[in-house]
């Protein structure tokens, strides 16, 4: 079911959606978004590419092992939680603050965002490994 229009459009749109999903991830702490949504959005992008190009081409363009995302994501989330233990605080205690960067001005950082990044990776990993394993079967 190859379609030239779909193929072309998806290639262009791919990066737009990807960037949008990152934006969703980063702003998730202060506005609607976050790891779950961004993860699903990213997966949706890849699936679009997948539908347009077929599994073989997907592997050429994106030589990513999505299954590996799951443990990596879990690890990031767990480690973020473990850090406060060293300071004698409970597991998963978060910290946040504001930093002044030269170009961007004041931005906020929070360890919870790192945690959310782990969530993001897991969601992408889970969704993509399910879909690709089914598609390649």
């Amino acid at each position: 079911m190859k379609s030239f229009i779909l193929e072309t459009v998806s290639k262009v749109v791919l990066f737009v959606i990807l960037i949008f999903s990152f934006y969703l991830l980063l702003r998730g702490h202060n506005a609607p978004g976050g790891g779950f949504i961004a993860g699903l959005m990213t997966s949706a992008t890849f699936i679009l590419l997948y539908l347009a190009l077929g599994p073989g081409a997907r592997k050429q363009i994106l030589p990513l092992n999505f299954r590996a995302f799951i443990p990596v994501g879990l690890l990031i989330s767990a480690l973020t939680g473990l850090v406060p233990l060293a300071g004698g605080k409970p597991f998963l205690t978060s910290a946040f603050g504001y930093a002044d960067l030269p170009v961007f001005g004041e931005i906020e950082w929070a360890t919870a965002m790192l945690f959310d990044f782990g969530v993001y990776l897991v969601v992408v990993g889970v969704t993509m490994s399910i879909i690709s394993v089914l598609g390649e079967e």
Partner: peptide, 17 residues
């Protein structure tokens, strides 16, 4: 609900397969 939706997706995938 947010977590439930995502989990629901994963379990649906599982029972479908």
């Amino acid at each position: 609900n947010l977590t439930a939706i995502v989990i629901g997706f994963a379990t649906t995938a599982f029972i479908l397969v």
